[in-house]
Amino acid sequence: MAGTLAVSAVLPSFNAVLFAATKPKKGPWYGIAIDIEKCIGCGSCAKTCKIENDVPPEPFFFRSWVEQYTIKKDGSINVVSPNGGIDGFTQKIPDNEIEKTFFVPKMCNHCSKSPCVQVCPVGATFESPEGVVLVDEKYCIGCRYCIQACPYGCRYMHPTKKVVDKCTLCYHRLKKGLNPACMDNCPTKARISGDLNDPDSEISEFIRKKNVYVLKPHLNTGSKLYYNALNQEVR
């Protein structure tokens, strides 16, 4: 008993994952919330992202994409994302074999302790004062360290610019007072972004009221992409 007390006095208390992000005291601090219960897998987010940000149209270069997880009755898990979901999803597994299936939209988590920022050797990828992780394409040397470091697979090598490219949370739209293109064009309003520093913002209320979860919390990335109704099997 005395030993337990002594240890608990020495060790710091656990922090909630929600507070893994160290917020600045002033100014906006952007985060993202995605409600899996509302996602219909139409791929509008992936399509609008590609157009708005001139992401190369060939497949397998995505800043934002949708995956369909299918947990079968035999216990196996099937994950598909044909063309990032842009052309929609066709259910190939018959209903009677499915235990559970759902869509998971994915994008950059805009982590507050980003592994990608930590490994950049030249300071070309960084976190803006608003908490948005960006790439300076004039400064990037194309070494691909950050692509390796990102645990969420959110970065790719731009085939013509030969520098690393990633989601900017539509920084050019945020600065003009608009929402990111994927958020504005989601037909069911399954995805929102906003200021985590403002207790009255839509996203702060979302996080308070729903059972939110971040991807790979054990990696301590300080992810600011909060999912409602995320299944444990999602990686």
Partner: peptide, 9 residues
């Protein structure tokens, strides 16, 4: 598609 929430669409 079984993955689409019935109420949403």
């Amino acid at each position: 598609n079984k993955a689409r929430p019935e109420k949403a669409v």
